[in-house]
Design a protein around this nucleic acid. Structure first.
Length: 528
RNA sequence: GCCCCCGUAGCUCAACGGGACAGAGCAGCGGAUUUCUAAUCCGCAGGUUGGGGGUUCGAGUCCCUCCGGGGGCGCCA
């Protein structure tokens, strides 16, 4: 259960009962934990609407809240109300959640399609793809945990200009072409692919198509190793053959005009999306632009019944967003149904020095290399440490270090430690006793039970906006709290009842951490 | 020139629809090991949130402006 949501509803009920108004207010954390478990600024927020002073409102809300089940204390403080949950009630919620392994929230009537990575099938995946994959996949897992029906999709640009360039590059490396093609693909891997095509006697006209399949297979294999599962893969070549291009032309017609022999979409007819110029959809040579095919693809997504269409794009696509939204608005899909998260770049560091890459020479650090160098667990967790919209410095040296400053081990160690404690208890025939949780009276123990339950609000809040770093930060916080408790208190002692109660707490922590790690796509080791 | 992201402790970053005295980690200094794994913990120190103005009961967060860093501005994808 999401305590924050629940408290918001409780406050809403109080407002309804007292003033007969249907209002919802946000619930947050007070600045210092000793002030309470949760806080709300109801007084300030409703002062205008209710025409009462903030103090009066918060005092009244606090008074009514105190009578509700689960709330031990509600204290007005200016326009704020600070709330302390009832300890026995809290342990009961903890016990329920733990008994079921911190299960996902009930399902909601909301469908979301996440599209991420969708790298060109012209080469191996790089580290930006690794970041997008970690963010996209964890976002999907978090949405599902929050009860949202979320799917992940991979789009393959297996048609168009870059495929022609790939074909030409392969021909060049096979010695069938004198000059290296303009916008061609370099790198050892292209040469290797050309050799393989020749060795396997693939007919020249099928080279690009065949290589796309090989590369796609390789990309998907790396993503699988990375624990990323796609629910669907859509090919641009399929979209081109589908009914969607015709539908786009038809629906877009009122917003199209001709200029210099090209067909242009009046993107500026939708100033709310901020595009600064109109966009060509059909070139004067009659060939549609990438934008046109992409609209067809997104129309297809929308017609499959998703409420929200989310694209994770690289920073180089930032200027592309306004026209897509305007286009979808014109198609009747609604520009706001598309949400774009720009996943910023990744800077690699090794031994404190920047790892340089030259795309021009076809040299870059592959995602596969990253997995070999630091492993899946560290790679994924590090990618989740920062807000996706900010650039990420990835310290390769730290990621493979087996020490306390490596955040991934810090969290994994929490899990290993809980498992070890339970095993130690078992050896002494001490099984966890959830019924005994109520006898735990240390502030740390109450705080730990609450921290575990906060998994729900953390994930639900983070899943709304794709702020996956909150999950990582949460796991680090919970781990800190747990390690400190472990250091301070002996779990298994002569006191059998107390030991069994503490083991029940430890068992719940184990399950909460395991769930959090699962959402991050990171393994929860039993020993380290 | 226009648009987007960013600027918070020496370093890397948090701060959840604007909330209370801006928090962590690392680095620095000082401590804790007869242990249920020290891959851990405790303490100290560290800030004019890039500058200025505005809106608000309240601004790191919103608006304007300036400075600095990164990215984008194709009938490429």
């Amino acid at each position: 259960m999401n305590l924050k949501t629940w408290l918001g509803e409780e406050i809403g009920a109080v407002i309804r009962a007292r003033w007969g108004q249907e209002l919802s207010v946000p619930v947050a954390y007070p600045p210092r934990p000793e002030m309470g478990d949760y806080a709300s600024s109801v007084g300030f927020l409703l002062a205008r609407t209710l025409r009462r002073s903030p103090q009066e409102i918060s005092a009244a809300v606090a008074e009514d809240l105190r009578t509700r089940e689960g709330i031990r204390e509600a204290t007005p403080a200016g326009g704020f109300v600070n709330i302390v949950l009832d300890e026995a009630w809290l342990f009961a919620r903890f016990r329920e959640a733990a008994a079921r392994g911190f299960p996902p929230l009930p399902s909601k009537d909301l469908r979301v399609l996440l599209e991420f990575v969708s790298a060109n099938p012209t080469g191996p995946l790089n580290v930006v793809s690794a970041r997008a994959a970690a963010v996209g996949d964890t976002w999907k897992r978090m949405l599902r945990f929050a009860g949202v029906q979320a799917d992940a999709e991979y789009y393959v640009n297996d048609a168009g200009g870059q495929i022609r360039a790939l074909q030409a590059s392969l021909e060049y490396f096979a010695g069938l072409r004198e000059a290296f093609p303009e916008d061609g693909y370099r790198g050892a891997y292209v040469e290797a692919l050309a050799r393989r095509l020749v060795a396997e006697d693939v007919p020249r006209e099928a080279w690009a198509r065949t290589v796309v399949d090989w590369i796609l297979e390789e990309q998907m294999a790396v993503l699988r190793d990375y624990r990323v599962d796609y629910d669907s893969v859509v090919r641009e070549s399929w979209v081109r053959r589908s009914e969607y291009p015709a539908k786009v032309r038809e629906k877009l017609a009122p917003y199209l005009y001709e200029q210099d022999g090209a067909v242009v979409f009046r993107s500026t007819a939708f100033p709310q999306f901020g595009d600064d110029k109109d966009r060509v959809v059909i070139r004067k040579n009659g060939e549609p632009t990438y934008f046109f095919w992409d609209l067809a693809y997104h129309l297809y997504k929308a017609e499959r019944g998703y409420d929200r269409l989310v694209d994770l794009l690289g920073p180089d696509h930032q200027g592309y967003v306004p026209r897509m939204k305007a286009g979808l608005e014109a198609l009747g899909v609604g520009g706001d149904r598309l949400e774009v998260l720009i996943v910023q770049q990744v800077n690699l560091f090794r031994e404190g020095k920047r790892v340089r890459m030259s795309k021009r020479k076809g040299e870059f650090y592959e995602m596969k290399t990253l997995l070999e160098e630091v492993g899946v667990d560290a790679a994924r967790f590090f990618m989740l440490l920062r807000a996706p919209s900010t650039p990420l410095d990835f310290d390769l040296t730290l990621a493979r270090k087996l020490s306390q400053d490596n955040p991934v081990y810090y969290v994994q160690y929490t899990h290993a430690r809980t498992v070890n404690l339970l095993r130690y208890g078992e050896e002494r025939e001490l099984a966890p006793d959830p019924e005994g949780l109520f006898r735990l009276d240390l502030p740390e123990e109450r705080a730990l039970a609450l921290a575990c339950l906060r998994l729900y609000e953390t994930v639900e809040d983070a899943a709304r906006t794709g702020e996956v770093h909150r999950l990582a930060q949460y796991l680090l916080d919970l781990s800190r709290t747990f390690h400190a408790y472990y250091q301070k208190v002996r779990i298994v002692t002569e006191d059998e009842a107390l030991s069994r109660a503490r083991l029940a707490l430890v068992d719940g922590i184990r399950k909460a951490v395991a769930r959090g790690l699962e959402l991050a796509g990171v393994a929860a080791p039993e020993s380290m």
